[in-house]
Simulated scan of single mutants.
Amino acid sequence: MADGDVEMWLDEVAGALDVTLEDVLPSATQDELLTLTGDIAHNVVRLAVPLSSYLIGVAVGRGASAEEAIRLVGGLLPAADA
């Protein structure tokens, strides 16, 4: 899937969920989340990626900042201990 296709998909998903993409998932947060999920996939297990992402979303929905949630989960990575 090309980058433009991903952007179109995310716009479509945001519309279906009645949110504004740039308000809830700005480009900088997308980059941080993609880096984190890549690290989870490579250092934990791929199956943990969507589930961890969901938990981050729940935490953000309950009032945590996306940056703080990403930082906390990133701190749990095995590579962070090395």
Results as ranks from 00 to 15, higher is better:
residue 27 S to E: 04
residue 75 G to P: 07
residue 33 L to A: 05
residue 57 G to R: 07
residue 27 S to R: 03
residue 4 G to A: 10
residue 29 T to E: 01
residue 66 A to Y: 03
residue 12 E to Q: 12
residue 60 V to T: 11
residue 47 L to Y: 04
residue 53 S to E: 02
residue 23 D to H: 07
residue 14 A to S: 14
residue 80 A to M: 15
residue 39 D to C: 01
residue 56 I to A: 09
residue 1 M to E: 09
residue 82 A to H: 15
residue 19 V to W: 00
residue 75 G to A: 06
residue 53 S to C: 13
residue 32 E to M: 02
residue 1 M to I: 11
residue 28 A to E: 08
residue 9 W to C: 08
residue 29 T to I: 11
residue 33 L to S: 01
residue 26 P to S: 00
residue 34 L to S: 05
residue 3 D to I: 10
residue 47 L to Q: 13
residue 57 G to Y: 04
residue 72 L to P: 02
residue 26 P to A: 01
residue 14 A to M: 06
residue 8 M to N: 14
residue 6 V to K: 13
residue 14 A to N: 10
residue 52 S to L: 09
residue 25 L to P: 01
residue 55 L to I: 09
residue 18 D to E: 14
residue 55 L to G: 00
residue 25 L to A: 03
residue 45 V to N: 15
residue 7 E to V: 15
residue 23 D to W: 04
residue 15 G to P: 02
residue 19 V to L: 10
residue 54 Y to F: 15
residue 18 D to I: 06
residue 67 E to S: 13
residue 5 D to H: 13
residue 56 I to H: 09
residue 45 V to W: 08
residue 58 V to H: 02
residue 45 V to D: 12
residue 59 A to C: 07
residue 5 D to F: 09
residue 77 L to R: 11
residue 60 V to E: 04
residue 33 L to P: 00
residue 74 G to T: 10
residue 67 E to N: 10
residue 10 L to A: 14
residue 8 M to V: 10
residue 4 G to M: 03
residue 36 L to V: 02
residue 68 E to Y: 10
residue 4 G to T: 05
residue 44 V to W: 09
residue 50 P to C: 11
residue 17 L to Y: 08
residue 31 D to L: 05
residue 31 D to H: 04
residue 74 G to H: 09
residue 33 L to G: 02
residue 16 A to W: 11
residue 10 L to P: 04
residue 38 G to E: 08
residue 34 L to K: 02
residue 73 V to E: 06
residue 19 V to I: 04
residue 53 S to I: 11
residue 56 I to R: 12
residue 35 T to P: 00
residue 51 L to P: 06
residue 25 L to Y: 03
residue 66 A to P: 05
residue 6 V to P: 10
residue 48 A to F: 08
residue 35 T to A: 06
residue 56 I to C: 08
residue 54 Y to A: 10
residue 34 L to E: 04
residue 55 L to W: 13
residue 36 L to D: 06
residue 35 T to I: 01
residue 7 E to D: 15
residue 12 E to G: 12
residue 22 E to Q: 06
residue 9 W to G: 03
residue 15 G to N: 07
residue 15 G to Y: 08
residue 40 I to R: 01
residue 33 L to H: 04
residue 46 R to M: 04
residue 73 V to L: 15
residue 37 T to W: 03
residue 39 D to L: 09
residue 56 I to D: 09
residue 73 V to F: 12
residue 50 P to R: 07
residue 61 G to H: 13
residue 77 L to C: 13
residue 8 M to T: 13
residue 3 D to W: 08
residue 50 P to N: 10
residue 80 A to G: 14
residue 48 A to L: 09
residue 8 M to F: 08
residue 59 A to F: 03
residue 29 T to D: 01
residue 45 V to I: 14
residue 38 G to C: 01
residue 75 G to H: 10
residue 35 T to D: 12
residue 13 V to Q: 02
residue 57 G to M: 10
residue 75 G to S: 11
residue 9 W to D: 04
residue 4 G to C: 08
residue 72 L to C: 09
residue 9 W to E: 07
residue 60 V to P: 05
residue 29 T to G: 00
residue 65 S to C: 12
residue 7 E to P: 06
residue 1 M to Y: 08
residue 53 S to W: 04
residue 15 G to E: 01
residue 6 V to C: 04
residue 43 N to Y: 08
residue 25 L to E: 02
residue 32 E to F: 00
residue 16 A to T: 05
residue 14 A to E: 05
residue 68 E to W: 11
residue 76 L to T: 15
residue 57 G to I: 07
residue 53 S to Q: 14
residue 54 Y to M: 12
residue 9 W to T: 14
residue 47 L to V: 12
